[in-house]
Design a protein around this nucleic acid. Structure first.
Lengths: 329, 329
DNA sequence: TTGTATGCGTTATCAC
DNA sequence: GTGATAACGCATACAA
C-alpha cells in the first residue's frame, strides 16, 4: 500500500526525474506530462518520503523546541507562537520537556542533532557551558527565548527594569513596606534580575532594604502561598507583595482570601508573567505582561531568518513588557 | 565540522561496517577494535545521522501528536504524559496544534505521514470520515485520546456515566433545579454524552427536564461566565449548575463572586476536567477529574505496543474518572 | 523537455 | 571478526 517515486514513474510512463520535477514544481515540464504524472500520483495515493528527500537536500524542515515543562502555565503560549510561525514556513516542531535538568537538556540536544533538525528554540533558565560548546561545535542555529547568553541570538524582556517599574508603582501608591517573593536566587532571568529591580527602586526612593521582607520562592502556587504566610506572620507586615511570577502570586491571593485579608486595601499583590489565569482569578491580578506568544513567534521568525541566511538587524531582541493594572493593587 | 561514518572508519582504520557495528552495539566486534572506533568517534565528535538510518531501517523513532491547542488548559497535561512515555522508549514527538480545524488536521496528517512518523496520537472532538479513510489507507498506527471512533484504538473515560454521577450527587444534596452549561451540542465527547448523563440522572430521580436550564457553551471561560448570567436571570433560578468543563465553570464562579452569590450555599457549581486551576481558585471547584496525564501516558503506551506488534488486551481503554468534592458544592 | 546515473549516510547481506 | 557492496527513496548534474 506504500508506493514510491518509481511506482509513480512506471504508472505514468515517465522517468523518476520527471516525477520528481512535478513534485518539486519545476517549471520545465510539459503540461501534458505533468497531468499524466499528477494523475498517477493521485491514483496511487503516493506521498513523497520526506526522510529520503532530507537525506539528499540536507535539511529536514524540522526544528526542535526545548522548554522546561509544557504542563507549566507559562510555556504553552510561547510554544503556540513558535508553532504558528513554524507552520507558516512549513516547519514541523519536535517538542522536548527538559524539566530544567541539565542532563535531559543534553540528551535532547543530542537527539535533535542526530535527527538533523534545522534549528532549535531554547527556553531554560541558564545555558550550561557544556551545552554552549556543543551548540558551537555542531553549529546548529539556536535562539534563546526568555534568557540571554553570550553571543547567542535571543528574545527577552528587560526583567530588571520591569521589576523596577512594579516597585516604583507600588511606592507611588504610598506603600513603604513592600515584600518580595523572588525566583531562585541564582536564576539569572527570573531571580537575580527581578530582585535587582526591586532593590533599585527602593534605593532610588530612599527606602531601606529589609532582608526580612525577601523570601525565595520555588515558582509554584504552593510555594507562593507559603512564602506569603511567612511574610504575613511578621510583626511588621508588608502592605504590598511583589511576586516573581503569577503562579506564586495566585497562591498569595488565595491565602489572602482565606485569611479574609482585603485585597488590595490591606494587601496589594503584583505578579509577573500575565498567565491566562491571572485575569480570571478573583480579584484579578495586577501583573507584568510578558508578550509570551510574541516571544515565541518572534523567536521562530529570527530562526527562520538565520536558516535562510537572511541578514538580521540584531540577534538580541528586547521586547516590551507592560504593567497591567487590575484588581489586586 | 560534520563527520560521517566514513570519516570515523578512516580515522579508526577499519571499515564502515565495523563502525556501524559498534554504534549498534553488535556483539561480534573485538574489544580492541571497538576501543579504536570509540576513540575515533569521540575525537571527531561524530554523531550518527538518524535520517540516513531511518531511510534504511524504515522507522524514525518519531511519533506525532495532534491536539486542538496546546495553549488551552486541558491539553498540556496529556501531552506531558505522552512525552514522558515517548521519552522512555526513545521516541521524539512532533507537536501539531489543529485548532479543531478539519483542514489543518488533514494537512498535519499528511505532513506527519510524509515525515514517516511511526505512529500518531490524536486528540480532537470528532474524527472526520476523510481522516479515517486516510488513516486506514496509509495504515499508520494511531490512537485516539479522549474520543472514540469505529475500530480505532482509544483511551477515554465514560463521559455519560460521569455526568450522571455528578447530577445524581447534586440531587442527593437536595437540589431540584439544576442548570447545565454544555459543550457544543454536536460534539460527541463533551457535548452529547455529558448532556445524556444529566438527563439520565434527572429521569431516574423523577425530576422533569427543563429546556430552559440548558445552555450551550463554547468551552472558554467567558462563555461560561455569560451562560451563567443567563441562567441566573431566570425567574426560577437553578440552585446548582453543572458545567461541561472547568474553564467555563471557573467563569461561572467568577460571576458568582462578582454578584456576591454565596458558593455553595446559594449556588453549587461543579465542573469537569480537574484542570490545574480548579483547585487553586477560591472557592476551589468541585469537579470530575479526568486522569489527563494518565490518558496521555497510557495512550502512548498502547501506541508503543502496537508499534512493537505486541498483543494488546483491548484497543478500547476506559479509564476511571473521579468526582473531586471541593468547596464549590 | 525528458531520461540516465550518481550519491546523500546508513544498515544488512554476503563473502572472506 | 571484518570488509565490500548493494540497497533505502529521492534530487540533481549531465547527457540526449
Amino acid at each position: 500500500m506504500k508506493f514510491n517515486i518509481k511506482d509513480v514513474a512506471k504508472k505514468a510512463e515517465v522517468s523518476i526525474s520527471t516525477v520528481s520535477r512535478v513534485i518539486n514544481e519545476s517549471k520545465v515540464v510539459r503540461p501534458e506530462t505533468q497531468k499524466k504524472v499528477i494523475k498517477a500520483i493521485e491514483e496511487l495515493g503516493y506521498k513523497p518520503n520526506a526522510i529520503a528527500r532530507s537525506l539528499k537536500v540536507k535539511n529536514t524542515k524540522t526544528i526542535g523546541i526545548m522548554i522546561p515543562d509544557i504542563s507549566n502555565q507559562f510555556y504553552p503560549e510561547v510554544v503556540r507562537g513558535v508553532e504558528d510561525i513554524a507552520n507558516m514556513y512549513n516547519y514541523n516542531i519536535f517538542l522536548c520537556n527538559t524539566d530544567l535538568d541539565d542532563e535531559k537538556e543534553m540528551q535532547y540536544f543530542d537527539a535533535l542533532a542526530e535527527k538533523q533538525v534545522d534549528g532549535i528554540i531554547f527556553m531554560g533558565n541558564i545555558v550550561s557551558e557544556e551545552l554552549y560548546s556543543k551548540i558551537k561545535f555542531y553549529n546548529i542555529p539556536l535562539v534563546l527565548i526568555g534568557a540571554d547568553y553570550e553571543d547567542l541570538p535571543s528574545v527577552t524582556i528587560n526583567n530588571t527594569e520591569a521589576a523596577y517599574t512594579v516597585v516604583k508603582y507600588l511606592i507611588e501608591k504610598g506603600h513603604k513596606r513592600i515584600g518580595m517573593i523572588t525566583g531562585k536566587k541564582h536564576d539569572p532571568v527570573t531571580g537575580v534580575t527581578r530582585l535587582k529591580g526591586y532593590k533599585d527602586a527602593l534605593k532610588e526612593s530612599g527606602l531601606l532594604f529589609d532582608e526580612e521582607l525577601i523570601i525565595e520562592g520555588g515558582y509554584r502556587f504552593k510555594s507562593g502561598y507559603e512564602a506569603a504566610k511567612r511574610l504575613l506572620e511578621l510583626e511588621n507586615k508588608p502592605t504590598a507583595i511583589f511576586v516573581a511570577n503569577d503562579e506564586m502570586a495566585l497562591g498569595v491571593t488565595r491565602l489572602a482570601l482565606e485569611m479574609n485579608i482585603k485585597v488590595p486595601e490591606d494587601l496589594a499583590i503584583i505578579g509577573f508573567d500575565n498567565i491566562d489565569m491571572s485575569q480570571k482569578f478573583y480579584p484579578a491580578l495586577t501583573t507584568v505582561a510578558q508578550p509570551m506568544y510574541e516571544m515565541g513567534a518572534i523567536g521562530m521568525r529570527v530562526l527562520t531568518k538565520i536558516l535562510k541566511d537572511e541578514p538580521i538587524d540584531t540577534n538580541k531582541v528586547l521586547l516590551n513588557y507592560s504593567l497591567i493594572e487590575r484588581e489586586s493593587s
